[in-house]
Simulated assay, not measured.
Amino acid sequence: MSPDELTGRALARMVDISAVQAQHGRADVEALARHALEGDFVAAHVLPSWLPVLRPLLVGSTTNAGSPVGFPSGGSATPIKVAEAGWLIEAGVQEMDVVMNIGLVRSGELAAAGRDVAAVLSAVGGAVPVKVILEVGLLDERQLRDAARAALDAGATSLKTGTGWQGVATTPRHVEIMRAAAGPGPEIKASGGVRSLEQIRALIAAGATRFGINTAVAVRLVAEAGA
Rank of each mutant, 00 (worst) to 15 (best):
V120D: 02
A180E: 15
G108M: 12
I204K: 08
R220F: 00
A119M: 04
A119D: 10
R13S: 10
E109R: 15
I200M: 03
V117W: 01
Q23P: 00
P184C: 05
L37M: 13
E141V: 04
A119I: 07
V120M: 10
I89N: 03
T157N: 00
G8C: 11
A169N: 06
L88M: 14
D40N: 14
G114S: 14
E95R: 05
V222D: 05
T171I: 07
E135D: 15
I213C: 10
S107Y: 00
R195N: 00
S107Q: 14
A225S: 05
V120I: 12
L11G: 09
S67I: 12
L139V: 04
A227H: 12
G92A: 09
A10T: 15
A206F: 03
W50S: 11
L159A: 10
E187T: 14
V217S: 05
Q21P: 00
R26P: 02
K131G: 01
G137P: 02
P48A: 13
M14C: 14
G60E: 15
N214Y: 11
L11C: 08
L11S: 08
A77W: 07
Q21S: 13
G183V: 00
V136D: 04
V130H: 06
V117K: 01
W165Y: 13
L58K: 13
G167I: 02
V93E: 09
L32E: 13
V42A: 14
T209Y: 04
P56I: 12
W50R: 12
H35K: 07
L159V: 09
G155E: 09
A19K: 15
V120Y: 04
S73A: 13
H45L: 14
A148K: 00
M100G: 01
G167Q: 01
E90G: 12
L88K: 09
T209E: 12
A83W: 12
L51R: 08
A223N: 12
V217Y: 05
L121D: 01
V120L: 10
L197T: 11
E135V: 05
A123C: 00
G192V: 06
G155I: 12
W50P: 00
A31P: 04
I200A: 08
A36Y: 07
A218I: 06
L57T: 10
T63G: 10
R106W: 01
A111V: 12
A31K: 14
L197P: 11
K131L: 10
T78D: 08
T163W: 02
V117F: 01
R34F: 05
E90T: 11
A44C: 06
A111L: 04
M178H: 07
E135K: 04
K81D: 13
L57D: 14
W50G: 02
D28V: 07
T209F: 10
L37S: 08
A216W: 09
R149L: 13
A208K: 11
H174R: 02
G185Y: 02
V132H: 03
A119N: 06
V132E: 00
G212R: 03
D28P: 08
E187P: 00
E135G: 06
